[in-house]
């Protein structure tokens, strides 16, 4: 038997007798010499509580008198079922607040998410939200199942990369040019693959798309050549790389 259980049992069996004077602490302890050290303090504490019980007893007549009062009072207070308690717990203002608060929170959340997405869409390489922009584009591509739509989206993303490159040159962020040219190349290759797939599945549809992408790349080459003339030498390597990538794209389209 666990010591806690044994001590509890001894206390239960003897505390009343000790409090009444029929037994003494020492006589009980003499019966359990092995656990005396454990038992003594607890037995003494239990006796104190037993004796103190009378100091917290109700005053004479309280239960009888208060019973009458309680019975009178509950006549006008029917028991309430759970749904009644829920309704009564809330005032009309509380109900309105409970309904409006989540709506406001949702609206604010939507506003924050929307602002973040918009800021991400306008970001260029080097901005904190640029990776979010790339992630959103990947998600859009993953959820576009129609091949023609997918190709259009791919081409839009290629155009976005060319615009980003121009913006980087205009803003003087030359450090990001090689990486941006690399991303542009990857997008052009992906667009060419997509166009190839469309031409095999639905011949004729791809012609407009090819012309559009060709225009985009040609414009990019012209724009970059103009910017190169006004840019410092440190930017030339990156710009040349982008021009080369765009030219390769135009050649591939032809």
């Amino acid at each position: 038997m666990k010591i806690e259980r044994q001590v509890d049992q001894i206390i239960n069996e003897n505390v009343t007798a000790i409090a009444a004077g029929d037994e003494s602490v020492e006589s009980i302890l003499a019966r359990y010499p092995k656990i005396e050290a454990e038992l003594r303090p607890r037995l003494e504490a239990a006796i104190l509580l037993q004796q103190a019980r009378y100091s917290v007893a109700t005053r004479p007549g309280f239960i009888h008198d208060s019973r009458k009062y309680l019975e009178t009072k509950i006549v006008s207070m029917p028991p309430r079922y759970s749904w009644q308690r829920i309704i009564m717990r809330y005032t009309p203002q509380r109900w309105v607040f409970n309904l409006i608060a989540p709506v406001i929170v949702l609206l604010m959340l939507a506003l924050v998410v929307n602002s973040t997405l918009l800021t991400a869409r306008l970001s260029i390489p080097g901005d904190p939200l640029f990776s979010t922009k790339l992630l959103i584009e990947d998600i859009q591509l993953a959820f576009t199942l129609n091949q023609v739509d997918k190709t259009n989206l791919q081409m839009q993303q290629t155009q976005e990369r060319t615009l980003e490159f121009v913006e980087l040159v205009m803003e003087g962020d030359y450090d990001y040019l090689p990486a941006a040219a690399g991303r542009m190349e990857a997008e052009i290759i992906a667009s060419l693959h997509a166009l190839n797939t469309v031409s095999m599945n639905s011949p004729g549809v791809e012609l407009t798309m090819v012309a559009k992408l060709s225009d985009t790349l040609t414009n990019e080459i012209q724009m970059l050549n103009m910017l190169k003339a006004t840019s410092p030498n440190s930017a030339h390597a990156g710009i040349n790389l982008a021009i080369q990538v765009a030219r390769s794209g135009v050649l591939a389209l032809h």
């Binding site: 806690e4 509890d8 607890r42 003494e44 504490a45």
Partner: peptide, 8 residues
């Protein structure tokens, strides 16, 4: 068990 010891 612990509470009684603490009370003591």
């Amino acid at each position: 068990h612990r509470a009684l010891a603490d009370l003591r």
